[in-house]
């Protein structure tokens, strides 16, 4: 039986799309994409248990990217939905958290960090859509948030001096807390691999694109994420098989 996964997101989907030739999906899985540039995300909403464009222009914008004539995302049609990027940017809050966590004399309790992360996530309508979709129980929901900015390409002066000394262990701890939070909403986190992170809260320049683009990532990075997504789907398949037997 063919299983269907849809990767839904903003321009950060591009890296994954570019990598599709490099990584094969798990056996029996069919992959499709539905997304558009982030600005159009202002014009989508959660209606009747689906993610729907609010106007024709947005519908067309999504159709252009997916090329598959999908006009809305109905979770009932998929075995898994992966939110990719989708305007959810840990880089907006993690440097400040890491600036405290990596500081030699400061301390934030895990509970407090969890609340800061939750507060940040819940500000995003796309996160609320993911949570609503997971709560609906019709599909399995995954979230791969936007990666950190690319090292060496920042247009602004760097802030958060202490956070730049944060280790992979520090970031891993934040990912674990995020994973737990998402799990409470029925969502599985596909986090940025810590081995792609440098200088505390930047993405290694080898995963960057273009000279002036400090945001998007290349196919190599996309392949790393796809690999994790497919691993997670494989786990889901194994679990389903175990349950069936």
């Amino acid at each position: 039986m063919t299983r269907k996964v849809i990767l839904f997101g903003d321009s950060h989907l591009a890296a994954l799309k570019l990598a599709t030739g490099r990584i094969a999906p798990p056996e029996g899985w069919e992959v499709s994409f539905w997304g558009t540039a982030g600005t159009r995300f202002r014009n989508i909403s959660w209606r009747d248990g689906c993610i729907c464009p609010d106007d024709t222009a947005t519908e067309q914008a999504f159709a252009r990217f997916s090329g598959e004539g999908i006009t809305r995302l109905d979770p009932a049609e998929y075995d898994a939905v992966v939110f990719v990027g989708a305007r959810i940017r840990p880089g907006a809050i993690l440097p400040d958290i890491l600036n405290h966590v990596a500081h030699p004399t400061r301390h934030l309790t895990r509970e407090y960090i969890g609340l800061v992360l939750a507060e940040h996530l819940l500000r995003h309508s796309t996160y609320q859509m993911a949570a609503a979709m997971a709560a609906g129980g019709k599909t399995k929901v995954y979230l791969n948030p936007i990666s950190f900015e690319t090292a060496g390409k920042q247009p602004r002066p760097r802030a958060y001096k202490v956070a730049r000394e944060a280790t992979h262990d520090h970031v891993s701890e934040i990912w674990r807390l995020t994973e737990r939070l998402l799990a409470e909403d029925g969502i599985t986190l596909i986090a940025q691999p810590v081995e792609t992170i440098v200088e505390g809260y930047y993405t290694d320049a080898r995963f960057g694109v273009g000279q002036k683009d400090h945001v998007h990532k290349n196919a190599e990075y996309g392949a790393l994420i796809l690999e994790r997504i497919f691993d997670a789907l494989s786990q889901k398949t194994k679990t389903a098989i175990r349950k069936a037997s």
């Binding site: 400040d96 958290i97 405290h100 400061r106 934030l108 609340l115 800061v116 507060e119 940040h120």
Partner: peptide, 14 residues
């Protein structure tokens, strides 16, 4: 001297 990330409301609650 003891800052915290997050919104002012959350920080104040803590």
């Amino acid at each position: 001297a003891e800052t915290a990330p997050g919104s002012a409301e959350l920080a104040r609650r803590y």
